[in-house]
Amino acid sequence: METREQYFTRINRFGRISFAIFFVLMFAIPTVVCAVYDIFPSLATALKATMGLFLILTPIALSEIVSFVPLLGSGASYLTFETGNVSNIKLPCAMNALKLAGVQPASEEGEVLSTISVAISSIVTTSVILVAALLLAPLAPVFANPSVRIATANVLPALFGALVVAFLTGGDSGPVVIRGQWKAFILPLFVVAVIHYLVFPIKGWEGVTILVLLPVTILGARFLFKRGQITVVSKEPKP
């Protein structure tokens, strides 16, 4: 059996190589299309159109790496960032899987389960979009249905309502139980509420806000832990 280090090295090598090939494939699509139809934009036009997006998306990616990789582990992270829809599908899906299994992120079991979860989630999303792409014309009345539009426009409140309960009530983390963990949610929620309603709306700045909140959340939890408000208790019965 491979050691944890060997598995870690192998999954990262595979992730890096396959992600790099994907990077080339991604650029190959517009290049082939532009070559065949002779519609290459000038370099100046391409750069002008690209720069704004590049400047917005690169810091978001940085914040997502720092915030989400410790939760997902390496294997799931490569898949998550490559298949997209990170905070609305892949991350909640993996976190739900770990919670249901009672497994901690940044553990060997957590890494394995989150990779399985994200791989399955990616296959399902791709299949649903494939069906939608194939049936776009016949499905047009369904997509245009006001009830469907209202329901899908409210996917995030419904998703995070369920996640809040799952993550605030359960303290089961593998061989231990964490008591009072929910208290660590009050400070980041308060900070975001103050920023969002009194300073500036965070829409479009979620990634950066998460990056700022990470140390705030951990320091708040550290304070509560030291005060005995959050405790870690072993599940094994005392002899």
Binding site: S67, F160, V164, F167, A193
Partner: peptide, 21 residues
Amino acid sequence: FGIVAIGVLYYAVLAVFVAPF
């Protein structure tokens, strides 16, 4: 505390999406 710290990381994500609702 490492177990607690990893456990609360997701709270930052939750807070960012929940407060604006």
